[in-house]
Design a protein around this nucleic acid. Sequence first.
DNA 1: AAGTCGTGGCT
DNA 2: TAGCCAAGACT
Length: 287
Amino acid sequence: MDVRAVVSWFDDVARDLPWRAPDRTGWGVLVSEVMLQQTPVARVEPVWLEWMARWPVPSALAAAGRGEVVRAWGKLGYPRRALRLHEAAAVIAESHGDVVPSDVETLLALPGIGAYTARAVAAFAYGQRCPVVDTNVRRVVARAVHGSGEAGPPSTARDMADVERLLPSSGAAHFSAALMELGAVVCTARSPRCADCPVFASCAWQKAGRPAYQGPVKAAQKFAGTDRQVRGLLLDVLRGSATPEPKSRLDLVWADAGQRDRCLDSLLVDGLVEQTEDGRFALPGES
DNA sequence: AAGTCGTGGCT
DNA sequence: TAGCCAAGACT
Protein backbone atom coordinates (compact mmCIF):
# COMPACT_ATOMS: atom_id res chain seq x y z
CA MET A 1 0.00 0.00 0.00
CA ASP A 2 1.43 3.32 -1.07
CA VAL A 3 0.71 5.45 1.98
CA ARG A 4 1.98 8.67 0.42
CA ALA A 5 -0.13 8.24 -2.70
CA VAL A 6 -3.28 7.71 -0.66
CA VAL A 7 -2.55 10.66 1.61
CA SER A 8 -1.71 13.10 -1.16
CA TRP A 9 -4.85 12.04 -3.03
CA PHE A 10 -6.85 12.66 0.15
CA ASP A 11 -5.26 16.07 0.68
CA ASP A 12 -6.31 16.92 -2.84
CA VAL A 13 -9.92 15.77 -2.96
CA ALA A 14 -11.17 15.23 0.60
CA ARG A 15 -14.75 16.32 1.20
CA ASP A 16 -14.87 19.17 3.70
CA LEU A 17 -17.23 17.57 6.18
CA PRO A 18 -18.01 19.71 9.23
CA TRP A 19 -16.72 17.17 11.75
CA ARG A 20 -13.34 17.34 10.02
CA ALA A 21 -12.94 21.10 10.53
CA PRO A 22 -9.67 22.20 12.17
CA ASP A 23 -11.55 23.40 15.26
CA ARG A 24 -13.26 20.04 15.74
CA THR A 25 -13.78 18.74 19.24
CA GLY A 26 -13.68 15.24 20.63
CA TRP A 27 -17.38 15.55 21.30
CA GLY A 28 -18.14 16.54 17.73
CA VAL A 29 -16.11 13.65 16.39
CA LEU A 30 -17.80 11.20 18.75
CA VAL A 31 -21.28 12.37 17.78
CA SER A 32 -20.44 12.18 14.09
CA GLU A 33 -19.06 8.66 14.37
CA VAL A 34 -22.13 7.36 16.17
CA MET A 35 -24.46 9.03 13.70
CA LEU A 36 -22.45 7.61 10.81
CA GLN A 37 -22.84 4.02 11.99
CA GLN A 38 -24.73 2.45 9.08
CA THR A 39 -26.01 5.84 7.97
CA PRO A 40 -24.91 7.82 4.88
CA VAL A 41 -22.95 11.05 5.23
CA ALA A 42 -25.56 13.11 3.38
CA ARG A 43 -28.24 12.20 5.90
CA VAL A 44 -26.01 12.80 8.92
CA GLU A 45 -24.62 16.21 8.06
CA PRO A 46 -27.68 18.44 8.74
CA VAL A 47 -28.57 16.58 11.92
CA TRP A 48 -25.00 16.77 13.22
CA LEU A 49 -24.99 20.56 12.68
CA GLU A 50 -28.23 20.89 14.65
CA TRP A 51 -26.89 18.76 17.47
CA MET A 52 -23.64 20.69 17.76
CA ALA A 53 -25.49 24.00 17.93
CA ARG A 54 -27.95 22.67 20.48
CA TRP A 55 -25.68 20.43 22.55
CA PRO A 56 -22.08 21.66 22.09
CA VAL A 57 -20.70 19.67 25.01
CA PRO A 58 -21.56 16.27 26.52
CA SER A 59 -23.14 17.76 29.64
CA ALA A 60 -25.57 19.70 27.48
CA LEU A 61 -26.86 16.55 25.84
CA ALA A 62 -26.91 14.75 29.18
CA ALA A 63 -29.18 17.49 30.54
CA ALA A 64 -31.75 16.92 27.81
CA GLY A 65 -34.61 14.47 28.14
CA ARG A 66 -34.61 11.14 26.31
CA GLY A 67 -37.66 12.17 24.30
CA GLU A 68 -36.00 15.35 23.05
CA VAL A 69 -32.96 13.35 22.05
CA VAL A 70 -34.96 10.72 20.19
CA ARG A 71 -36.94 13.41 18.39
CA ALA A 72 -33.78 15.31 17.45
CA TRP A 73 -32.32 12.07 16.11
CA GLY A 74 -35.03 12.34 13.49
CA LYS A 75 -34.94 9.71 10.79
CA LEU A 76 -31.28 8.73 10.98
CA GLY A 77 -32.41 5.21 11.79
CA TYR A 78 -31.47 2.75 14.53
CA PRO A 79 -32.74 5.16 17.22
CA ARG A 80 -31.29 3.13 20.07
CA ARG A 81 -28.04 4.81 19.03
CA ALA A 82 -29.52 8.09 20.25
CA LEU A 83 -30.25 6.63 23.67
CA ARG A 84 -26.78 5.15 23.95
CA LEU A 85 -25.20 8.44 22.93
CA HIS A 86 -27.31 10.17 25.57
CA GLU A 87 -26.05 7.68 28.15
CA ALA A 88 -22.47 8.08 26.98
CA ALA A 89 -22.78 11.84 27.33
CA ALA A 90 -23.89 11.42 30.92
CA VAL A 91 -20.92 9.21 31.73
CA ILE A 92 -18.52 11.66 30.08
CA ALA A 93 -20.05 14.59 31.94
CA GLU A 94 -20.06 12.88 35.31
CA SER A 95 -16.94 10.74 35.23
CA HIS A 96 -14.60 12.34 32.69
CA GLY A 97 -14.90 16.05 33.43
CA ASP A 98 -17.09 16.64 30.39
CA VAL A 99 -14.16 15.75 28.13
CA VAL A 100 -14.39 12.89 25.64
CA PRO A 101 -11.73 10.33 26.61
CA SER A 102 -8.75 9.96 24.29
CA ASP A 103 -7.74 6.39 25.05
CA VAL A 104 -9.33 3.43 23.32
CA GLU A 105 -9.91 1.43 26.49
CA THR A 106 -11.95 4.15 28.16
CA LEU A 107 -13.88 4.87 24.99
CA LEU A 108 -14.75 1.18 24.60
CA ALA A 109 -16.40 1.25 28.01
CA LEU A 110 -18.95 3.83 26.85
CA PRO A 111 -22.36 2.62 25.66
CA GLY A 112 -22.71 2.42 21.89
CA ILE A 113 -18.96 2.69 21.35
CA GLY A 114 -17.44 -0.42 19.81
CA ALA A 115 -14.14 -1.39 18.24
CA TYR A 116 -14.54 0.90 15.25
CA THR A 117 -15.94 4.01 16.92
CA ALA A 118 -13.52 3.95 19.83
CA ARG A 119 -10.52 3.96 17.50
CA ALA A 120 -12.07 6.46 15.11
CA VAL A 121 -12.44 8.93 17.97
CA ALA A 122 -8.96 8.24 19.33
CA ALA A 123 -7.48 8.75 15.86
CA PHE A 124 -9.55 11.55 14.35
CA ALA A 125 -10.06 13.64 17.48
CA TYR A 126 -6.76 13.00 19.23
CA GLY A 127 -4.35 11.89 16.52
CA GLN A 128 -3.63 8.54 18.08
CA ARG A 129 -2.02 5.80 16.06
CA CYS A 130 -4.48 2.90 16.06
CA PRO A 131 -6.13 0.80 13.37
CA VAL A 132 -9.47 2.31 12.36
CA VAL A 133 -11.34 -0.42 10.53
CA ASP A 134 -14.75 0.13 9.05
CA THR A 135 -16.45 -1.46 6.08
CA ASN A 136 -14.68 0.93 3.69
CA VAL A 137 -11.24 0.10 5.00
CA ARG A 138 -11.96 -3.61 4.97
CA ARG A 139 -12.95 -3.40 1.32
CA VAL A 140 -9.91 -1.33 0.28
CA VAL A 141 -7.54 -3.70 2.06
CA ALA A 142 -9.29 -6.74 0.61
CA ARG A 143 -8.75 -5.40 -2.88
CA ALA A 144 -5.51 -3.44 -2.82
CA VAL A 145 -3.63 -5.78 -0.46
CA HIS A 146 -5.23 -9.20 -0.70
CA GLY A 147 -6.44 -9.04 -4.30
CA SER A 148 -9.96 -10.08 -3.43
CA GLY A 149 -13.02 -8.34 -4.88
CA GLU A 150 -14.75 -8.06 -1.52
CA ALA A 151 -13.83 -8.32 2.13
CA GLY A 152 -14.73 -11.65 3.68
CA PRO A 153 -16.70 -12.01 6.90
CA PRO A 154 -15.45 -9.49 9.48
CA SER A 155 -12.99 -10.61 12.13
CA THR A 156 -12.10 -7.68 14.36
CA ALA A 157 -8.76 -9.05 15.50
CA ARG A 158 -7.58 -10.08 12.05
CA ASP A 159 -8.92 -6.97 10.34
CA MET A 160 -7.17 -4.70 12.83
CA ALA A 161 -3.91 -6.63 12.48
CA ASP A 162 -4.13 -6.21 8.70
CA VAL A 163 -4.50 -2.45 8.99
CA GLU A 164 -1.97 -2.12 11.79
CA ARG A 165 0.69 -3.34 9.37
CA LEU A 166 -0.18 -0.55 6.95
CA LEU A 167 -0.06 2.33 9.43
CA PRO A 168 2.89 4.70 9.04
CA SER A 169 4.87 5.59 12.14
CA SER A 170 3.72 9.18 11.86
CA GLY A 171 0.53 10.53 10.36
CA ALA A 172 -1.33 7.28 10.99
CA ALA A 173 -4.61 8.99 11.84
CA HIS A 174 -4.49 11.10 8.70
CA PHE A 175 -3.75 8.00 6.66
CA SER A 176 -6.71 6.21 8.23
CA ALA A 177 -9.01 9.05 7.28
CA ALA A 178 -7.63 8.87 3.75
CA LEU A 179 -8.16 5.11 3.55
CA MET A 180 -11.77 5.49 4.63
CA GLU A 181 -12.36 8.27 2.14
CA LEU A 182 -10.87 6.13 -0.61
CA GLY A 183 -13.31 3.34 0.16
CA ALA A 184 -16.21 5.75 0.42
CA VAL A 185 -15.77 7.61 -2.85
CA VAL A 186 -13.51 5.57 -5.15
CA CYS A 187 -13.14 1.95 -4.04
CA THR A 188 -16.89 1.56 -3.61
CA ALA A 189 -18.77 -1.69 -3.17
CA ARG A 190 -20.42 -1.49 -6.58
CA SER A 191 -18.82 0.09 -9.63
CA PRO A 192 -15.49 1.16 -8.13
CA ARG A 193 -13.93 4.15 -9.90
CA CYS A 194 -10.58 2.50 -10.47
CA ALA A 195 -9.56 5.09 -13.05
CA ASP A 196 -9.49 7.68 -10.25
CA CYS A 197 -7.66 5.50 -7.75
CA PRO A 198 -4.32 6.67 -6.33
CA VAL A 199 -3.14 3.07 -5.84
CA PHE A 200 -4.36 1.67 -9.13
CA ALA A 201 -0.83 0.74 -10.20
CA SER A 202 -0.08 -1.33 -7.11
CA CYS A 203 -3.56 -2.75 -6.47
CA ALA A 204 -3.41 -6.51 -5.96
CA TRP A 205 -6.95 -6.94 -7.26
CA GLN A 206 -6.06 -5.17 -10.51
CA LYS A 207 -2.89 -7.20 -10.90
CA ALA A 208 -4.89 -10.40 -10.43
CA GLY A 209 -7.25 -9.38 -13.22
CA ARG A 210 -10.10 -8.29 -10.94
CA PRO A 211 -11.30 -11.77 -10.08
CA ALA A 212 -14.88 -12.12 -8.87
CA TYR A 213 -15.37 -12.61 -5.16
CA GLN A 214 -15.29 -16.28 -4.21
CA GLY A 215 -16.02 -16.21 -0.48
CA PRO A 216 -19.25 -16.87 1.38
CA VAL A 217 -22.29 -14.83 0.33
CA LYS A 218 -23.77 -12.83 3.14
CA ALA A 219 -27.51 -13.31 3.50
CA ALA A 220 -29.35 -10.23 2.31
CA GLN A 221 -31.23 -8.76 5.22
CA LYS A 222 -34.91 -8.19 4.67
CA PHE A 223 -36.73 -5.09 5.80
CA ALA A 224 -40.28 -5.10 4.44
CA GLY A 225 -42.56 -6.80 6.92
CA THR A 226 -39.98 -7.09 9.69
CA ASP A 227 -40.28 -5.83 13.24
CA ARG A 228 -37.73 -3.24 12.27
CA GLN A 229 -40.16 -1.71 9.81
CA VAL A 230 -43.06 -1.81 12.27
CA ARG A 231 -41.01 -0.25 15.06
CA GLY A 232 -40.03 2.48 12.63
CA LEU A 233 -43.64 3.17 11.73
CA LEU A 234 -44.72 3.29 15.37
CA LEU A 235 -41.90 5.59 16.40
CA ASP A 236 -42.53 7.84 13.43
CA VAL A 237 -46.07 8.52 14.67
CA LEU A 238 -44.82 9.50 18.12
CA ARG A 239 -41.95 11.61 16.75
CA GLY A 240 -44.49 13.55 14.72
CA SER A 241 -46.86 14.14 17.62
CA ALA A 242 -46.48 16.82 20.29
CA THR A 243 -48.88 15.07 22.65
CA PRO A 244 -49.34 11.43 23.73
CA GLU A 245 -51.28 9.24 21.32
CA PRO A 246 -53.93 6.65 22.17
CA LYS A 247 -53.17 3.09 21.20
CA SER A 248 -55.97 3.29 18.65
CA ARG A 249 -53.81 5.72 16.70
CA LEU A 250 -50.83 3.38 16.77
CA ASP A 251 -53.03 0.50 15.66
CA LEU A 252 -53.43 2.21 12.30
CA VAL A 253 -49.80 1.76 11.26
CA TRP A 254 -49.80 -2.03 10.85
CA ALA A 255 -52.51 -4.61 10.27
CA ASP A 256 -51.05 -7.55 12.18
CA ALA A 257 -52.06 -6.90 15.77
CA GLY A 258 -49.73 -9.48 17.23
CA GLN A 259 -46.67 -8.06 15.53
CA ARG A 260 -47.78 -4.51 16.28
CA ASP A 261 -48.10 -5.18 19.99
CA ARG A 262 -44.84 -7.07 20.14
CA CYS A 263 -43.06 -4.13 18.52
CA LEU A 264 -44.68 -1.54 20.75
CA ASP A 265 -43.64 -3.61 23.75
CA SER A 266 -40.06 -3.82 22.52
CA LEU A 267 -39.97 -0.05 22.08
CA LEU A 268 -41.16 0.32 25.69
CA VAL A 269 -38.49 -2.12 26.87
CA ASP A 270 -35.83 -0.23 24.93
CA GLY A 271 -36.90 3.05 26.52
CA LEU A 272 -37.73 4.64 23.19
CA VAL A 273 -41.42 4.93 24.13
CA GLU A 274 -43.29 5.47 27.38
CA GLN A 275 -46.88 4.96 28.44
CA THR A 276 -48.67 7.76 30.26
CA GLU A 277 -50.85 7.22 33.32
CA ASP A 278 -53.98 7.47 31.21
CA GLY A 279 -52.70 4.71 28.94
CA ARG A 280 -51.55 6.75 25.97
CA PHE A 281 -48.11 6.50 24.36
CA ALA A 282 -45.37 9.07 23.75
CA LEU A 283 -41.64 9.54 23.47
CA PRO A 284 -40.03 9.33 26.93
CA GLY A 285 -40.59 12.20 29.33
CA GLU A 286 -43.31 13.90 27.35
CA SER A 287 -46.32 12.97 29.44
C1' DA B 1 -21.79 -16.05 16.32
C1' DA B 2 -25.58 -15.34 13.61
C1' DG B 3 -29.64 -12.15 14.15
C1' DT B 4 -31.42 -7.97 15.18
C1' DC B 5 -31.84 -3.15 14.91
C1' DG B 6 -34.13 2.08 10.56
C1' DT B 7 -34.22 4.62 6.63
C1' DG B 8 -33.97 6.07 2.00
C1' DG B 9 -31.29 6.71 -2.29
C1' DC B 10 -29.42 4.35 -6.07
C1' DT B 11 -29.14 1.06 -9.96
C1' DT C 1 -38.27 -2.92 -9.75
C1' DA C 2 -36.49 -5.10 -6.08
C1' DG C 3 -32.59 -5.67 -4.12
C1' DC C 4 -28.22 -3.58 -2.56
C1' DC C 5 -25.95 -0.67 0.33
C1' DA C 6 -24.48 3.17 3.90
C1' DA C 7 -18.02 5.56 8.94
C1' DG C 8 -21.48 -0.90 13.53
C1' DA C 9 -22.97 -2.32 18.18
C1' DC C 10 -24.99 -5.54 20.93
C1' DT C 11 -26.70 -9.96 22.35
